[in-house]
Nucleic acid binder design. Sequence first.
DNA 1: CTAGTTAGTTATTGATCACTAACTAGGTAC
DNA 2: GTACCTAGTTAGTGATCAATAACTAACTAG
Lengths: 209, 209
Amino acid sequence: MRIRKSAEARRLEILQATLRLAGEVGPDRLTTETVARDVGLTQPAVFRHFATKQDLWDSVADYIGKTMEAGWAEATGRRGAAEHRLRSLVATQLRLIQSTPAIPAILFSRELHSRNAALRKALFGLMRRFHGLVARAIAEARDATVFRDDLDPDDGAFLVIGLIQGLALRWSLSGRAFGLVEEGRRLLDLQIRGFTRVTATRTQNRRPG
Amino acid sequence: MRIRKSAEARRLEILQATLRLAGEVGPDRLTTETVARDVGLTQPAVFRHFATKQDLWDSVADYIGKTMEAGWAEATGRRGAAEHRLRSLVATQLRLIQSTPAIPAILFSRELHSRNAALRKALFGLMRRFHGLVARAIAEARDATVFRDDLDPDDGAFLVIGLIQGLALRWSLSGRAFGLVEEGRRLLDLQIRGFTRVTATRTQNRRPG
DNA sequence: CTAGTTAGTTATTGATCACTAACTAGGTAC
DNA sequence: GTACCTAGTTAGTGATCAATAACTAACTAG
């Protein structure tokens, strides 16, 4: 059967299928045949829309980047306490990973990186931008005397990002057996408790484990 | 030229070459031809020592596991404060990653996982064992009233492991541009400061940023 | 010295891919 | 309704790999 669609609609279909399938079989094992079947096309039809497979990956990276930036803009745009903005950033990122599990798979895939330096640079740049946003939220919370004043915002942001990445990896290896966002909230609570300035009167004990 | 060696010696040579090269070109892009050339053999000679490539990967995973367990045993064997054991565990792991950069590459490689469920399970099991050791050290430090008593050891261990993984990923993406162990020590200091019980009299301020 | 074993070789095969060439049918402008 | 454009098709190519077949030279036991 031959179903014709507009070039633009097909491009988007192929992009999203690639992204979804990359999360299932792994970025490097994903063939154009698999993508084509998924969107209901023959394999060569993919090359009507993307000159090379590399071009397809570049577009995917671009798509991920735009999606992330949009999410971050929304999370940082809302007014409120810096600590709340920090939570919002992390939650947004985890939701994005949960809905698009290919993201860590692509980020972690050394294959794609060594094959394509541009993609690696783009992903590294994205990570740096996210780090900047997190560090900024931490710095503001520190300046508002909510976080300890000996807390280095850059290092704090590295810990928060490590929290996300460790969680994403464990989630991935576990076969996506738990809720990323809920687990993330609990861990972030703990991490933030460690960041928080402790006044002399406050002792906040819970019963031990 | 035909250089004969004992089967056992060759097996080890091939294993170590695979491990090293996996870190350079990526686990899934690594061909038996590349491995063979590296140890000075022809490609089919590899199959004199490993029945299939899968078998080679299984052996690599086993080798990594044994190396890790040995390192952990040494780090936890030494007597001393629980907090010191925690630092020792993290430092050991980072040293291991620094000397064998393929480890995160293999751990993160979704390709290998989807192709080989056994490998994935083995790696997940290793991660769980490490998590157990870290959690135990944290629990002991908490019971010794060094760490806060509302600190859940499992969650604390997840944060510490996230620290390692985030660091390893950043190190890998950055082209291994910094010292893993030093950077790790600084971040672990920060993380442990967040775990530490704060007595009412202690305020520990440094000048801000 | 000889027979058997084994770590190596060269040559080849079959599978899997990305990508191309040549053709075809659906949509649209006039 | 005809000419043109373009999103599709089928068929096929060349590259890359893991793995095999058949043979060979080095070592080793008797």
